[in-house]
């Protein structure tokens, strides 16, 4: 019996040894909560829409930082540029929303292709400084180039058509909520396909050991630029969504704060697992909203305490906490013995 079961266990283990995102209980939970929220707390759909968009934005950051090891602090640049592109599109080209998202994605992707070769030449602190600098330059540009960006006032006064000509945007954010949810779902599917692919594995290999990856004959800079561009396009879509559902895009989208908040969300949720973005961004924005409601003056204190506790007690984020718990249970049942031993 014993030999039989080992023989059977060995056969599929090669396949299982390749990490893969599969539909599981976490997915069911996440999407049920997201859809359920619409019915349970219909008066909070504005906050809900913000949370969904920020999950999308944090997801884009997870691709770059969590999977590619690109420690960028300039993800906000893509977000802001995508938002401005969508607003500009609505003002000057067409009010149709889907094409506006595409415009935001393409302009952000273009930014990725142009800045990627410069940024990805570096690593670590240098990379952080360059990404910060590029975001600041774009912010300055947005303030200065009034004819394109509206300067300090930002772009506003544009109208967004109903989605597919059917679903009108309403002041209760009902349409906006499902719009953001649908876009997030599509982006999540794309992200999952990419991280499961040979390209996704290559990216993780570059994160682990770029020198060795090059010795295997892989042009690592090109692969990183590809990832950076995809991540940027996704962040651009998040910015475009914001511009469309709020009817306003301002210089504040190009500040360091936007990038910083997404990074904090990812620290709370956990890097390199996709789900970390969902849990982290939801926790960050809902907590911020509640803390600000309770004490509008000192709510940042609550956020600070949350962050300290998170770093102290769950260094791998919420998603890591779940994995630790699972490992603990397996060990208790004696199943994960050999895995736990090392």
């Amino acid at each position: 019996m014993a030999t039989l079961s080992t023989a059977r266990a060995v056969a599929p283990s090669i396949r299982n040894a390749f990490a893969a995102h599969r539909i599981n209980a976490i997915d069911v939970g996440i999407w049920m909560v997201a859809i359920g929220a619409y019915f349970v707390v219909p008066t909070y759909l504005s906050l809900g829409t913000t949370v969904l968009i920020m999950i999308l934005f944090t997801l884009s950051l997870d691709l770059a930082v969590g999977y590619g090891g690109i420690d960028t602090l300039g993800q906000g640049a893509f977000y802001g540029v995508g938002g401005y592109a969508a607003a500009f599109w609505a003002l000057n080209v067409t009010s149709e929303p889907i094409s506006g998202l595409v415009a935001g994605a393409l302009v952000a992707a273009l930014l990725g292709i142009v800045t990627g070769p410069i940024i990805l030449r570096t690593r670590g602190l240098t990379l952080i400084m360059i990404t910060l600098a590029i975001t600041s330059m774009l912010e300055e540009f947005a303030v200065t180039a009034k004819s394109i960006t509206g300067g300090d006032d930002g772009l506003t006064g544009y109208h967004i058509d109903p989605i597919f000509g059917m679903f009108h945007f309403d002041i209760y954010f009902r349409t906006a909520y499902f719009y953001a949810l649908a876009v997030l779902a599509v982006a999540f599917v794309v992200a999952r396909i990419v991280v499961n692919s040979p390209f996704g594995l290559t990216i993780r290999g570059i994160r682990e050991n770029p020198v060795r990856m090059r010795l295997l004959g892989v042009p690592i800079r090109n692969r990183l630029i590809g990832l950076f561009t995809l991540s940027g396009a996704m962040a651009g879509v998040a910015g475009a969504l914001t511009a469309q559902v709020t009817g306003l895009i301002g210089v504040d989208t190009l500040t360091f704060l936007v990038s910083g908040n997404a990074l904090i969300s990812l620290i709370l949720g956990g890097f390199g697992r996709l789900y970390g973005a969902f849990l982290g961004a939801a926790l960050f924005y809902i907590f911020s909203d509640r803390a600000a409601a309770i004490n509008p003056f000192h709510w940042y204190l609550g956020l600070g305490v949350l962050l300290i506790l998170a770093v102290r007690f769950m260094p791998n984020g919420l998603i890591g906490l779940g994995e630790q718990f699972q490992l603990f249970r397996e060990r208790k049942q004696g199943r994960g013995l050999d895995r736990g031993a090392s």
């Binding site: 090669i14 040894a17 390749f18 990490a19 040979p198 390209f199 594995l201 290999g205 682990e208 060795r212």
Partner: peptide, 30 residues
């Protein structure tokens, strides 16, 4: 080596690179 990847993924990476699969953004080696 690639420390945080599994043994099979380490080898799979090399095989994927040798077969020029490393830029394929869909499907899975598994």
């Amino acid at each position: 080596l690639f420390l945080r990847l599994t043994v099979a993924e380490n080898i799979g990476l090399a095989i994927a690179a040798a077969q020029s699969l490393d830029a394929k953004p869909w499907g899975s080696l598994r």
